[in-house]
Design a protein around this nucleic acid. Structure first.
Lengths: 257, 257
DNA sequence: TAGTGGTCTAGACCACTGG
DNA sequence: CAGTGGTCTAGACCACTAT
């Protein structure tokens, strides 16, 4: 039910893509297998190389294959997803001494590394300012940006925003925030995380994200805008999580009221 | 921080893309504005038309522009997102007589339409069978597929899976399920939705999804695998929601325990 | 070194949109 | 009708990978 088939047949690039797609679906080509080269496909179907190339591009756009310069095009391997559950902020998990990311990496037998990329005083975007309850017209937030790696492969970017006046001069302005991380320090400032609000969407990566996450074409990102609310219902922390969608998934479990 | 700039400069297609991206970021080109035609760009930058075309394709892949045959390429308009909150299963909302989708459409002043595409007895995929607790080797599920439209624009596909033996001969096999929809009937069968589990990921659409949702290239889908658990913690319903990521977002609000 | 994908040129015809 | 994007041809050179 994709497109009008009579038309698809007449477009050589679609025709080649359809045949390759079928071969993948039927298991003639398994994950990790190499596709025929562009030049081979061009010869087989009596087309220009560009046309065979377009067929492979269509499959890459759907995330079915990945290309590697100098090597070939390959059927994408299914990857085990990182799962971030809605219990990831719970005290119980905090007490393990491991952050959600380290916990998940450990489950998969991978080595977690977290890199602090920047800690800067900034003027917040409208989106952040609204949620944190600060002015969008002043340098009112502290922006901490972290990069997360599993076995040295980059998997997520996290930007955390805090009210600058509140954290000025505290450990929250340092790379090493001490025991229990930023949530530990925020508790000392009187904010116990009580409620969480997460706005989830997906989009194609910006160029900087694509290059940092080493994203193959055709892989979107999950964009999670997270707001932490304290015991008084006051927002005290806003973070944006950008995950590779092919490596990460989110898990939410909740009761219906 | 995108790519090596010295190299980017040497690749005409990237160079053109970068300049257009900057024009969009700086507001020289606003959402809805038409980009220069491929032929104009080719002339301006002294390249072949294919090269200018490649530049526009790069932007389309990132979701920054959309192309329309015979009209031109346009800066994508920001769209208000449909929001599906974690209270969408609550009794309170059910009592309004409106389903979550109708409620959200109403908020935006749009007309909701739901089309029942199919109601079939099927053999479930491994993924569905596991979550519903049925055999993957028999026709053990009833599959109801619905398409959702807002102002006649398709925005989501929902496939609901129920245990066949349990719903055989009930209204759940009909298009019209009666008051309070399928959840109303399932309560009569002894299943009160008590807990919900949602597994969220994103991916590029399959061809059938792309064509049904009329997705422009560069727009991913949000894929939500939802499991409903009853008062005894028993899963009784599994649904897969496929949303256009450029029109839909998810909102989860929960307390930290 | 041979083979691969990445990019580019300079054309061509088609299908669709709008005046 | 002219202008647009969609697709295609038949070449070319480059950068990268593997042997």
């Amino acid at each position: 039910m994709a497109n009008d088939p009579s038309r698809t047949q007449r477009l050589p690039s679609r025709h080649i893509a359809d045949e390759l797609r079928r071969a993948i679906a039927d298991g003639e080509l398994s994950p990790g297998d190499k596709l025929p080269s562009e030049r081979e496909l061009a010869e087989k179907y009596k087309t220009a190389r560009n046309t065979a190339r377009e067929a492979i591009r269509l499959l890459a756009e759907q995330g079915l294959v990945v290309t590697q310069q100098g090597r070939g095009a390959f059927v994408r391997e299914a990857q085990r997803l990182f799962r971030f559950g809605s219990d990831r902020y719970s005290k119980k998990n905090r007490e393990s001494g491991l952050t959600p990311f380290r916990l998940e990496a450990k489950k998969q037998g991978k080595v977690a590394r977290i890199e602090v990329v920047g800690i800067d005083r900034e003027r917040p975007s409208q989106e952040i300012a609204e949620r944190l309850g600060v002015s969008p017209d002043a340098d009112s937030v502290l922006h901490r940006e972290n990069h997360y790696f599993a076995d040295e492969e980059p998997v997520q970017i996290v930007s955390t925003y805090l009210r600058y006046e509140e954290v000025e001069g505290t450990l929250l302005m340092q790379a090493k925030t001490g025991k229990d991380g930023i949530y530990g320090r925020l508790e000392e400032l009187g904010h116990v995380m009580t409620d969480v609000r997460e706005e989830v969407t997906a989009r194609m990566p910006a160029p900087a994200e694509q290059s940092f996450l080493r994203l193959p074409p055709g892989v979107p990102v999950l964009d999670v805008l997270h707001t932490g609310l304290d015991q008084d219902g006051v927002p005290f922390e806003v973070s944006r999580y950008v995950h590779r969608a092919d490596l990460a998934g989110l898990l939410y479990e909740f009761s219906v009221v």
